[in-house]
Design a binder for these strands. Structure first.
Lengths: 114, 114
DNA sequence: CTGTCATTTCCATAATATTGGAAATATGGA
DNA sequence: TCCATATTTCCAATATTATGGAAATGACAG
């Protein structure tokens, strides 16, 4: 018996199991300087999220570039968008992120601590 | 107090803490069909590893292409190479993978189960 | 309506990644 | 030494991603 981390049994309350195409999309979505930075800001911001404009300012990149990156992350299912009056507010999809980490620990981590 | 998974304190026996450039390299290394497949085979194989030729056969891709991908993963620090007579044997670096998962849970997972 | 703010879409350009055949390199055996 | 095996490096073609300005869209106030 191994039982490395989790106090619960094996595959617990994982909302969703990903196929490798989805995993690749999610990994690619995070494997970029501006996107990783944006995602971390969104994680920090929590469910309130951050508007596109704020993000662009905080990251110091042009709005059209940011828009491109946000789109990538949405298509990968890592973030979510909602409109609030004139602004579009983005927030991290924590369940999706948890599913990604779940995939990695289960498929790519055999034996190592997590 | 939150204490989501680990029975130990905060940042436990993590061999190494990654900067975001390293994380991006590792994510990009896994964000590709053939590389993710290769890495999963290496994880399954454990410390014994698999030779380049075997991997190419199992993945059904040309040797020069595989060589390119193995190089990417080595540069990203996710796999390791050793020579055994005529063959080059590759194996997964589990500590590196654990560090990647550690980064993701700590920086991109706030609040979600892991 | 008209103007303004917030953001996206369009699009051309530039940069980076992927592919695979052919030639080069390393290793061990006859 | 010479040959066969295992794998890499080279390189050119192709494909995919990233950039950012300008024009288009959506929302709201006067």
């Amino acid at each position: 018996m191994i039982a490395p981390c989790s106090p619960v049994a094996a595959s617990p309350a994982e909302g969703r199991v990903l196929g490798s195409a989805e995993v690749i999309a999610a990994l690619a979505a995070l494997a970029q300087e501006h996107r990783l930075a944006a995602f971390r800001l969104l994680v920090e911001a929590g469910p309130d999220g951050v508007s596109a404009g704020d993000l662009a300012d905080r990251l110091s990149i042009p709005r059209s570039s940011l828009s491109f990156h946000l789109n990538q992350m949405m298509q990968a299912g890592l973030i979510v968008q909602r409109r609030e009056s004139r602004s579009l507010i983005y927030s991290a999809d924590f369940a999706a992120m948890a599913a990604l980490v779940g995939f990695l620990t289960e498929n790519c981590c055999r034996g190592a601590g997590c």
